[in-house]
Design a protein around this nucleic acid. Structure first.
Lengths: 120, 120
DNA sequence: TCCGTGAATAGAAGACCATCTAACCAACGA
DNA sequence: TCGTTGGTTAGATGGTCTTCTATTCACGGA
């Protein structure tokens, strides 16, 4: 069973960085998300998926973009999945990934008081 | 001489993640910022500084909050400094740090198309 | 039912990171 | 000028992360 998404924790720590000091627990949960995004390959995967037609991309669309082996891509997708940033779904032969936009919006809100999450 | 802030690169990659795929270079620069924030101690330092009265905090205010040695705190502050997230200034005996809010606003804008950087 | 292809898992190797102790530099006061 | 206090630098160590190869699982077609 993969680690579950820290949604609740993020809810609890949505006061912007500058408003009051983060607690130890809030910082730990937030850092898990930032750690998941702290890799160029994963950032590109994220933007490839997010910008793909229909809001989802097949793994087969992603592997060709990088000079990396398929297991490595698979590993990075798992890191993003475990962080709750994306979800994967198998449809027949292929597996499709899509973004969890709420989490990005919440991360964004933590950074800047004025940031407005996009309406659904 | 410390590494300089990747401001220009961030300017160049401010199209939100979901709009179009990040280039390799954009992803590399962005990941440097996320990597700097991908640590619970550094996130707490960031929020301690940002939320401190006057928008700045003395190192002596920060060290007491953690169960870490002064050199370790100093190391984390250097990472944040090298990433361009904070700046330090010595005034007499003490060194004061403050946030670079524009970079947080830009990071925020990368995550969510609708995010509005705070007015200056 | 068996083979071929898309994708994930297992395990290992090398690079990178967080933390420590020891040593050093900067400012102030006696 | 010297000792004290605040903060950084240097170097070492243990842990984590990225990537690989080899293997395994899942599905579909012949």
């Amino acid at each position: 069973m993969p680690k579950q998404l820290p949604l609740a924790a993020i809810d609890a720590c949505c006061s912007p960085l500058a408003q009051e000091p983060l607690t130890e627990g809030q910082a730990r949960e937030l850092s898990r998300l930032f750690k998941a995004m702290a890799d160029p390959v994963r950032l590109r995967l994220l933007s490839l998926i997010a910008s793909h037609a229909g809001g989802e991309a097949c793994v087969c669309d992603l592997t060709g973009t990088f000079d990396l082996t398929a297991p490595t891509i698979s590993h990075h997708l798992k890191v993003l999945r475990d962080a709750g940033l994306i979800t994967g779904e198998r449809r027949g032969t292929w597996v499709y990934y899509r973004i969890h936009p709420e989490i990005l919006a919440r991360l964004s809100a933590v950074l800047v008081p004025g940031a407005q999450p996009v309406p659904a």
